[in-house]
Simulated assay, not measured.
Amino acid sequence: MSKDASALFTPFRIGDLTLPNRLAMAPLTRNRATPGTDAPNPLNVEYYTQRASAGLIISEATQISRQGQGYIWTPGLYTDAQIAGWRNVTNAVHGAGGHIFVQLWHVGRISHVSLQENGAAPVAPSAITAKSKTYIETGFVETSAPRALDAGELPGIVADYVRAAENAQRAGFDGIELHGANGYLIDQFLKDGTNQRTDSYGGSVENRARLALEVVDAVAKVYPKGRLGIRLSPVSPANDAVTSDPEAVFGYLVAELAKRGIGFIHVVEGATGGPRDNVAFDYQALRKAFPGAYIANNGYTRDLAIDAIEAGRADAIAFGKAFIANPDLPERLRRDAPLNEVERATLYGGTDKGYTDYPALSEAAE
């Protein structure tokens, strides 16, 4: 007999926003923004609108600047065309009764010279090349060697986050998630495997967390702090970013975030897209230290999600691949209906195939 899923369908709050269920659509890079402008287009509008029954949609990672881009055909939020494209998305999602936050992103070293202005080197806390790949017009390639950011450049990056947050307001987003996970720029500063600086942004836990907190403080002056969150991946080895001291780093960071009163933390538990138990880590310590909402992510099934919500281990559960393949995922989980399988060949780039053509239950029945 299947478990009762009613716990997933009680309202919960992020700041002053009441969300109708505890199912979040995780941020999912799909590389289908408009070539040349990186602006969202009508296909993206359809994709997000199909998934508006999520309690909260967190948009695909959206670069705050040209320098912040690491993959081809990912959307930005730094030009008028991009703002207008996103406004079409948010209007449609709101029209369908949904809520949508934008995930703001700077990839740091996970980029390629072909994506950077004038073929420049990507930037990073330290000049250490990632053992990772990125996606360009010809397909997957090794990431380019980065250069270390000068401390004097960091206020400009913080200003790019602020500008993107202001643009998010213009585009009609309900809130913001900062991408502090999966080996991108903020995470690169947090982790000692990628940050070997000797200035005030490197060395101690407090120094490595400095950029993350500066970005949070700056963006919280633009959006109500209750509508602001951050995604973290304490022990994920994604994009070759690891740290020797995850409990210390993320314990300190979450305590500081708690003092600031932001709305949520969104935690990748385990290895992104991989095992949940790759490194022992006390996620409930973060949950207990943080008074806002705790969104849990990575490898959750229907039963695991129900158990986590019923036990109070999380306020909401974010699903990724399941939302790609099942636009009506909440209804399927409510009914314990079978799920469509993800087509891996169509995850990145392409057309409506494997993007907006996954059937809902009603279409599958027909």
Results as ranks from 00 to 15, higher is better:
Gln188Pro: 03
Gln196Thr: 15
Ala159Met: 06
Asp160Arg: 11
Gly172Asp: 05
Asp160Lys: 13
Leu213Ala: 08
Pro155Glu: 08
Val162Asn: 10
Arg210Ile: 11
Arg197Ile: 04
Ile176Leu: 02
Gln188Asn: 04
Asp199Gly: 10
Phe189Val: 03
Asn182Tyr: 00
Ala164Asp: 03
Tyr184Gln: 00
Val205His: 04
Gly180Cys: 02
Ile176Lys: 00
Arg170Gly: 05
Ile176Arg: 02
Pro155Leu: 04
Gly180Met: 01
Ala181Arg: 01
Gly156Glu: 13
Glu214Thr: 11
Tyr161Thr: 08
Glu206Asn: 09
Thr194Lys: 04
Ala181Thr: 03
Ala171Met: 14
Leu213Cys: 08
Val205Leu: 10
Glu206Lys: 15
Ala164Ile: 11
Phe173Met: 11
Glu177Asn: 12
Leu178His: 04
Leu211Lys: 10
Ala181Ser: 14
Leu185Asp: 00
Gly172Ser: 09
Ala165Cys: 05
Leu185His: 01
Ile186Leu: 15
Tyr201Asp: 10
Arg170Ala: 15
Asp187Thr: 02
Gln188Met: 00
Val162Tyr: 07
Ser200Ala: 15
Ala159Trp: 03
Glu206Cys: 08
Val215Trp: 13
Gly183Met: 01
Arg208Ile: 11
Tyr161Ile: 09
Tyr201Gly: 06
Ile186Gly: 01
Arg197Leu: 04
His179Thr: 01
Leu213Lys: 11
Arg197Lys: 07
Gly156Ser: 14
Arg170Val: 12
Arg197Ser: 08
Gln169Pro: 02
Val205Ser: 07
Gly172Met: 11
Ala171Val: 11
Ala168Gln: 10
Glu214Phe: 11
Asn182Thr: 01
Gly193Pro: 09
Glu166Gly: 10
Thr194Ser: 15
Asp187Glu: 12
Arg170Thr: 10
Asn207Arg: 15
Val215Gln: 12
Ile186Cys: 04
Ala164Leu: 08
Asp174Ser: 13
Ala171Ile: 14
Leu178Phe: 04
Ser204Gly: 11
Gly183Pro: 03
Val205Ile: 15
Val215Tyr: 13
Phe189Gly: 05
Gln196Met: 07
Arg163Gln: 13
Leu178Pro: 07
Gly172Thr: 08
Glu166Cys: 02
